[in-house]
C-alpha cells in the first residue's frame, strides 16, 4: 500500500513545488495521475521513487517510510532511457538480476511471463541502443519489473507504443495487479491512463488534486 500525507517538496531548479495532501493506493491497485507538460508529474515520480529527497510530509510504502525503504521494493520506469545502450537485453537483465541478488536463471522465467503479453524474446540479443521507441518502452517496463517490486512507478506508460501494443500492456498491468504489485502511473494522456488504472487524479502546477 502507498500512503502519502502532506507531501511537499520545492524543486527550485525547475521553479516548481510538488504538493500532495492525501493519497492512498491499496496493494495491487493502480492509480493514474494526469497532467500537462510541466505540471510536475515527473518530479512527483522522483519523490515517490526516492530520487528526490528532503521533502516534508510522509510517504509510506507497505507501512515503511520511503526514506527507510529498501530500494528492491521499488520499480521505476522513467520517461528517459536509463538502461545501458551498449548492453543487450539479456546482458542488461542478467546484470540487474545479479545486482538484486536474484538467480540469473530467473531471467528465463520472467521472459516467459512477459512474452504472454508482448513478444520480448526476439529482442533477446539486441543492444538497448538498437531498439525503436516502442520496443525500448516495452523493455523498460520489463526491466522495471524484473526484480518483482511491490510498487511500480511508471512515467508515460505508453510512450512510443502503438494502439495494438497498448491493449496488450493493459492485460499486463491487470496481471501485475493480481500479483499484488501497486502501480502508480503518470501521463499527459488521459485515455492511456484510464486504460491501465482503476483510479485517476490530476496534477496542475505541482499540486495533486
Amino acid at each position: 500500500m502507498v500512503k502519502i500525507r502532506d507531501l511537499r517538496k520545492d524543486f527550485k531548479k525547475y521553479n516548481c513545488t510538488v504538493e500532495c495532501r492525501y493519497l492512498d493506493i491499496e496493494t495491487g491497485n493502480s492509480f493514474g495521475i494526469y497532467g500537462d507538460t510541466g505540471s510536475g508529474k515527473t518530479l512527483f515520480t522522483k519523490i515517490i521513487t526516492g530520487l528526490a529527497g528532503n521533502y516534508s510530509g510522509s510517504v509510506e510504502i507497505g507501512g515503511t517510510e520511503l526514506k527507510k525503504l529498501y530500494r528492491k521494493k521499488l520499480g521505476y520506469v522513467p520517461f528517459r532511457n536509463i538502461l545501458y545502450g551498449n548492453l543487450t537485453l539479456k546482458e542488461m537483465s542478467v546484470f540487474l538480476l545479479k545486482h538484486y541478488s536474484i538467480d540469473p536463471n530467473e531471467y528465463k522465467v520472467k521472459m516467459d511471463w512477459f512474452s504472454e503479453f508482448w513478444d520480448i524474446k526476439r529482442f533477446d540479443g539486441y543492444r538497448i541502443s538498437e531498439l525503436t521507441d516502442g520496443q525500448l518502452q516495452s523493455v523498460k517496463i520489463f526491466a522495471g519489473l524484473i526484480h518483482s517490486p511491490s510498487v511500480l512507478v511508471i512515467d508515460e506508460p505508453f510512450n512510443g507504443l502503438g494502439e495494438e501494443n497498448s491493449v496488450k500492456f493493459r492485460d499486463l498491468f491487470t496481471d501485475i495487479g493480481k500479483r499484488d504489485v501497486t502501480v502508480l502511473a503518470v501521463s499527459s494522456n488521459m485515455s492511456s491512463l484510464e486504460l491501465i488504472t482503476q483510479r485517476t487524479s490530476s496534477i496542475s502546477n505541482g499540486r495533486i488534486e
Partner: peptide
C-alpha cells in the same frame, strides 16, 4: 559519458551509487 542517464539507475539500485 557513455553511461549517460544511468546515474538515475544507480540511484534506483540497492547501494547503486557506491557500486
Amino acid at each position: 559519458t557513455s553511461e549517460k542517464q544511468s546515474s538515475m539507475l544507480a540511484k534506483l539500485l540497492p547501494k547503486g551509487e557506491c557500486f
